[in-house]
Design a protein around this nucleic acid. Structure first.
Lengths: 221, 221
DNA sequence: CTTTTTGTTACGGTTAACCGTAACTAGTGG
DNA sequence: CCACTAGTTACGGTTAACCGTAACAAAAAG
């Protein structure tokens, strides 16, 4: 059973509605936080007291307002939480498609459920909670399809570096210098050209501009 | 006074919380819709009955689920509503920065208030409602700054066409053919080159890839 | 230690993109 | 009707990007 829940969500609208849903579901105890740091602190404290949370419901993107925070991102929060309480259930509640991030979460089995802030999100959340309480995971299949479709291709760290540099206005023939300075393994112009060529071919893109837009939309940059 | 409100918001979480806020603010009557078409129909009906809404609270992006809809976008909804009830107040409630869209809304004075789904959105919404009931507009200044910063440059329709074609993988020297086919006025390769050059210069970009990412982030494509 | 495989780099030819200049066109105003 | 201006187009030279091939290096397999 899921008796104790912590909600990390910076949007007040969403936070409130999730709380209300917890009421509807008769969850015995839940707390909420608007900042990752606060959520992490509460989880840590509960853990020390021997009354750990069963489930973390968290957004992926947190907005930076004035107050300085150590953690300002859902992914980082998840990693931090997993390091202090590996067994906690994690439910992602996110508004944006961030195919790359989500793909990683899927791959590493770091999360147990995913609910999008979308048309029937309340029902989705209830269904997810139901699945979790039965020991199941919960991924809407629409999401799984999206991931597959938009991220068949596996970008390496090297790829992302190149693409990032291009998106910052670097010229291809100046990238080798940058790579050498930063001790990145393949650093020749040939390697860069070959890699870009391969990526374009596999994704069926005609030019780099198309690739850039794709990566931008996928949240790679 | 704002006595009668219609809420158009597809996210159930947000819709619920807005309703709750209307309760808190003692708004006499409010209705809600999860689809643009539904919202528009309600506005039309109320208008005919001689009991028009004072305020429309709407999201900008609506998700396409199975059900076919005539209107599937906040901007379109606003235009449609304005055409049948020009005097209605409009409050945007949006999660994403869409600099281009928002910039247009600002420019054309089509909206009366803007609230972002973010950290203190409930207070923001209450403050916006307060301003509106006093006959004022409500734009958070953080947003105004963002607009200015990210959209100094004014893209023409021609610019956007070119950029769109490039983002779809068109080669520059094939774009003239496309333009001629579609009877778009400047159609020579020279014009395209010159325009791109000018845009890059004004925005301080070194290559097209950088421009593409910028346009993608600005929501131009 | 050799062979094979895999990956990286170097080089040259080709194509596309870039950039300046000049010719041409259309619209404006005298 | 003739300048004048702004915008468009045509052209040629330069640079960057693309692409194939072969040499080379490093790791894996024999």
């Amino acid at each position: 059973m899921i008796d104790k829940v912590i909600i990390a969500e910076d949007q007040e609208f969403a936070n409130l509605s999730v709380q209300k849903t917890m009421d509807d579901l008769k969850v015995k105890q839940y707390d909420y936080a608007f900042y990752c740091d606060d959520a992490l602190a509460k989880i840590q404290l509960a853990q020390k007291k021997g009354e750990p949370y069963d489930l973390l419901i968290t957004d992926l993107s947190f907005e930076d307002d004035g107050t300085a925070q150590k953690i300002n991102d859902g992914i980082e929060l998840i990693r931090a939480v997993r390091s202090i309480q590996p067994g906690i259930l994690i439910l992602i509640l996110s508004g944006q498609y961030r195919p790359v991030d989500i793909h990683n979460l899927f791959e590493n089995h770091e999360v147990d459920a995913y609910v999008r802030k979308a048309r029937h999100d309340v029902q989705e959340l209830k269904a997810a909670m139901d699945a979790l309480s039965k020991g199941q995971r919960y991924y809407p299949r629409s999401l799984a399809q999206l991931i597959k479709r938009s991220n068949t291709y596996e970008f390496t760290e090297f790829d992302i570096t190149i693409i990032r540099l291009l998106s910052e206005g670097y010229q291809q023939n100046k990238i080798p210098d940058y790579l050498k300075e930063h001790n990145i393994k393949p650093s020749s112009l040939s390697s860069i050209e070959k890699r870009l060529n391969q990526i374009r071919e596999e994704l069926g893109f005609a030019n780099n501009q198309q690739l850039m837009v794709f990566c931008s939309n996928a949240g790679l940059l």
